[in-house]
Design a protein around this nucleic acid. Structure first.
Lengths: 143, 143
DNA sequence: AGACATTTGATAATGATTATCATTATAGAT
DNA sequence: ATCTATAATGATAATCATTATCAAATGTCT
């Protein structure tokens, strides 16, 4: 995985640095979580104490471009990043989220029943590339 | 509509002021659009030249609380507000959006095929209150 | 009209993200 | 292994949207 990405970087004239490796490791270790830049910084500093927030932002942005990470917003006014389920190989779709309105817990939904709806929309002349679906409600603990 | 909201405001010890009325009118006139606070300010100043951005934010927030407006984020780092399809009467669901990756045009999708998926999720112990679904792709013009 | 609480506008403060720039590190050639 | 060109880094300033503050103005009720 790390190798794959190093190669991808090289193909684009990017260099694999200690900081980028650290950020990537943080994301790999936190598969399934949705980290903010600040949270990534905190975790990254355990391995690379000198790393700055600007580098974290730049690296997250780069990894998003490369379709290794998925960038989304839960609260508003703040981005969160997560590893694609099948990071490394390009993919269009990914899981959805249920956000608990009480405790804020985020649960994944693997189910994907949207292809039918997408087909309907495409029959009206659109070309759908991706979708983003979030559910709001209460998780079993808070219900 | 305006009357309904005036009454709702009174019930909560809020006052109907010139500025609130102006913001409400702007939103009513722009049914189907997704305005940022800055855009609302601009339009509102045509009728109430002295209105300030803080008041616009406060009013949009209040109307969102009252479930007259729906607050969402398209680009990230910026909220947008739109009138509920059936503003005034509480409702859980509303249309979805298709965002063109080229020209940025936002189109509405009325179709709602998510109830099946919601039922599946609820059968796992969740209680779903609302959902937010966005499609990304190309509109007929840009395809 | 008068009293009182709410609202307003101007502006400062905040928080997240992006830009700037001098210094440092990397990849590839020698 | 060293050199060189170029990209990357860290510190910090700048930006942008949003929120907080507070004195002055306004709306509601009597």
């Amino acid at each position: 995985m790390k190798k794959k990405i190093t190669i991808k970087l090289k193909q684009n004239d990017y260099k694999m640095t200690e900081q980028r490796e650290t950020v990537l490791e943080v994301m790999l270790k936190n598969r399934g979580k949705h980290l903010s830049a600040e949270e990534v910084l905190e975790k990254a500093r355990k391995k690379s104490p000198g790393i700055g927030i600007a580098t974290v932002y730049r690296t997250l942005e780069k990894l998003t471009e490369m379709e290794v990470l998925y960038k989304t917003v839960f609260e508003g006014g703040k981005f969160r990043y997560e590893l694609y389920d099948d990071a490394g190989s390009k993919q269009q779709h990914h899981h959805h989220h249920i956000i608990c309105l009480k405790c804020g817990k985020i649960t994944e939904v693997q189910e994907d029943l949207l292809s039918g709806l997408e087909q309907k929309i495409e029959s009206q002349g659109f070309k759908i590339i991706d979708h983003d679906l979030k559910f709001f409600g209460y998780c079993p603990n808070c219900k």
